[in-house]
Write a protein that binds this DNA or RNA. Structure first.
Lengths: 197, 197
DNA sequence: TGGGTCATGTAATAGGTTACATGATTGC
DNA sequence: GCAATCATGTAACCTATTACATGACCCA
């Protein structure tokens, strides 16, 4: 029983929910569902499909969506068990790497206005993220056939939402702080700066 | 002018704030300052120090802290400029990978109680994170010599704090939701489960 | 004298992105 | 006929962690 990495488990997860997906489907599916907290490239997906097949955790399935030449897959019983076991394991807090925070941390070394500009940029990104999350949430039909996955999907959405909202609130006060800071810095250290690009 | 990666910029950043650091110092320093949003291993640091030296962005400095054999470094003027330029560049939202959310997303495929257990685990981790952040914030002397970096450092702390608080609040409601969900699932689908480990 | 921590480094391995190559099919 | 998108795959490269090797110094 050799090792599987994150990519392998996303694939097993997707196939446990819906059968007969191709590598291409998976990439698209990941973007549209777990996209905001998980990404995969084809360079990871295709080799992993081979590896999972070799381990009999998934198996090639006959194409239901015919037309184009495509290889679809289905999860095996062994695959389901493997996923099940993995889900029960404690999660890793993966190595956190936040470039925004790094740049902010060294903000005093930057040109005036730079830190503030980054915060504005972050605000913009979070506003857009919030819109996207809300749109997804709104797109869920209220009277759809009961789907046991839905409650879990909604929870991930709402955590994403909570993070975006928290960041936006923080951003408001951060922008005030930085504006004051740079105003006073300009008074004491340099003549009033022209607007920094 | 060849490329520098994140590791390189952290090193430049640290050396721009404080001179005469060794590779060992940097690793420790990173853990204690930017640790909650950035990590580096020796396997990255030492080779990067060589590369930065070769590019004359840092230079070996005579050890001020004598005693043990150690190689200290200082930033060069070119290094400062390079850091300065990088700080002004827009930040990347690096590939997001959140194993907790992934496991929650596939929660319906897990054994009863598993998702709830993960949320409990998350709560615990965030409580500890919050304590740590608060302790750091409290440890800042109020009447210290004015440090231009402090405001920026405080901002990073407060964003970390905001995330932890938001996650804790989300966790409370998520736990309620999951408890209800699994109770109703137990009524309809299986006899009341004994507590899952 | 021995454990802890300071200190530097490398090799093996894993994990991942990007860019490229290739071609079929669909719909306009 | 042509553009978009469906579809699969590989090679080059970068980034990073882990484990190991090595040894000095501090202090109890």
């Amino acid at each position: 029983m050799s090792k599987i990495n994150g990519t392998g488990y996303v694939i097993l997860g997707l196939l446990s929910v819906q059968s007969n997906l191709s590598g291409y489907d998976m990439r698209k599916g990941i973007e549209q569902s777990v996209g905001y907290f998980w990404g995969e490239s084809y360079g990871q997906i295709y080799p992993t499909l081979k590896a999972l097949t070799a381990q009999k955790l998934i198996k090639p399935a006959e194409a239901k969506r015919a037309g184009r030449k495509r290889q679809e897959y289905a999860i095996t019983e062994a695959g389901r068990e493997r996923l099940h076991a993995w889900l029960a394991l404690p999660f890793h807090n993966d190595p956190p790497r936040n470039e925004f925070l790094l740049k902010l941390f060294f903000g005093a070394q930057a040109a005036p206005g730079v830190a503030l500009e980054h915060v504005r940029d972050l605000q913009e990104r979070n506003r857009r993220a919030l819109e996207t999350l809300d749109a997804i949430e709104a797109s869920v039909p209220k009277d759809a056939p009961p789907n046991p996955n839905l409650p879990y999907w909604m929870l991930t959405l709402s955590l994403g939402r909570a993070f975006a909202v928290a960041a936006l609130e923080w951003g408001e006060s951060a922008m005030k702080m930085l504006a004051e800071l740079e105003a006073s810095g300009a008074r004491t250290k340099r003549r009033p700066a022209t607007k920094a690009k």
